[in-house]
Write a protein that binds this DNA or RNA. Structure first.
Lengths: 248, 248
DNA sequence: AAGTGGTCTAGACCACAGG
DNA sequence: CTGTGGTCTAGACCACTTC
């Protein structure tokens, strides 16, 4: 039969599986049929089936693991429209073009809100560093930054007194061999507090961009968290999303 | 010292090609050897070579076209570290969970800053709409939005007087068949202006999140631009990046 | 030990772009 | 027309997880 259209078979196959995930035939948390089963069911070669699987992985619908199988992560495909992805953000160039000067470091035991923010358990002792970021010869600093480092890595070297051009999470990766596999980021607008305003030589109560980044390892543990506060007239955040797959 | 297990051949091959692109052996704009040539040179099967090619495409280093070849787009790999990608942003759920109520529409001829923002030529007549966005039964609106629609699509239907649950760019896609392939986004912190503050029932001069989105078609033309202003205590922007390929 | 996905091979046919 | 990348097949071996 076929003749479903100009789409290659792996796309048709992927779309079929997406539909079946959406309609609950494969509930979230369950395992999809194995590659070989799918080969039989669809009469396709393993390469074609694998290409279809890649589509599902790319859309974040499933996780695959050798020896286990293909597990459904979420059934939320919303509309098939625009599922866009950022290709480039300033995360990359930011640190290279600016300098972070560490003002002080100390250890803290997070409690209350901070403990929640760091997903820390009670009694853990984190490393806390404060710093300001500058852009080249520009006189006014770009932002005030507070960094919290997971107790496991609080022996990190090379912070104090330096002008860092390398992101701190990268120092951790280098010194401890721990890989950051996910970065979560939250952005909001806040009024500049008196202390930070003074440090940055900016007007108190003026609008500022508040950015909190969590750096997670493979197990989802917070390796590091950084909170940056940027006076509104000194920084803007830009990113770009591209349509990653065709509308089917 | 981080120990890395042996990499699969397609990764080694990709890394080799990346190095050669970086060092100028394959200048920007030139064609890489064909798949079959690479098969010979590296003694690998075509599947392996193609898998390596996918890595280069994924990193945005090359463009491929059947009948032409593999052309080098850029040699800029920056650091091999974290090239992270957002997997999910509120771009997706935002419109579905909130309602945009259009307050008014009119046509404008952008000049000065606005003309630059829209990348418009002089004399073009764009459609301008103002609206406020609400979240469910919540009393206070989330943001004030001004939308600019490219002259080619200013005949768009279904804006006025509706409570939109569909992004406007999607309406354009549906009504005109024009595909949005890229979304550019800029975020900054601003002080809330008097007029918007009054419309949103928020304190004037308080901190607000300013988000400007450009929706581009395949030729890079601005189909639509939207500027949203969110009082600081009513909205925050969250996104997540995952490491897309292994460090080599 | 059995089964999974990850990698790899050596073929094949196709649509498309170029001379 | 020739050659390109895009798709597809039917095998194979491996590392890993699970039992």
């Amino acid at each position: 039969m076929t003749l479903m259209g100009p789409q290659p078979r792996y796309r048709q196959l992927a779309q079929t599986l997406i539909n079946e995930i959406e309609t609950g035939r494969f509930p979230v948390g369950s395992l999809l049929p194995t590659e070989f089963e799918l080969c039989e069911q669809f009469g396709a070669s393993r390469s074609t089936v694998r290409e279809a699987m890649k589509q599902l992985v790319q859309r974040g619908l499933v996780d695959r693991q050798a020896g286990v199988g293909t597990r459904v992560r979420t059934a939320n495909v919303s509309s098939p429209y625009r599922q866009v992805m950022t290709r480039l953000t300033d995360l990359q160039r930011y640190s290279a073009q600016t300098e972070l000067k560490i003002l002080n470091t100390k250890t803290v035991q997070p409690a209350g809100e901070l403990q929640e923010l760091l997903k820390s358990t009670a009694g853990q002792t984190w490393l806390r560093a404060e710093g300001i970021r500058n852009f080249g010869r520009r006189t006014e600093p770009i932002c005030f930054t507070e960094v919290y480092v997971n107790p496991a890595f609080r022996a990190i070297q090379g912070l104090e007194g330096r002008a860092l051009r390398t992101p701190i999470f990268m120092l951790i990766e280098q010194q401890f061999g721990e890989q950051v596999v996910e970065v979560q980021q939250q952005i909001r607008a806040v009024a500049l507090g008196a202390r930070i305003a003074k440090t940055l030589n900016a007007p108190p109560r003026s609008a500022a961009l508040w950015i909190c980044r969590h750096y997670l390892n493979r197990r989802g543990e917070v390796i590091e968290a950084a909170i940056s506060t940027h006076p509104g007239d000194r920084f803007s955040y830009a990113e770009s999303f591209v349509r990653d797959w065709e509308v089917t």
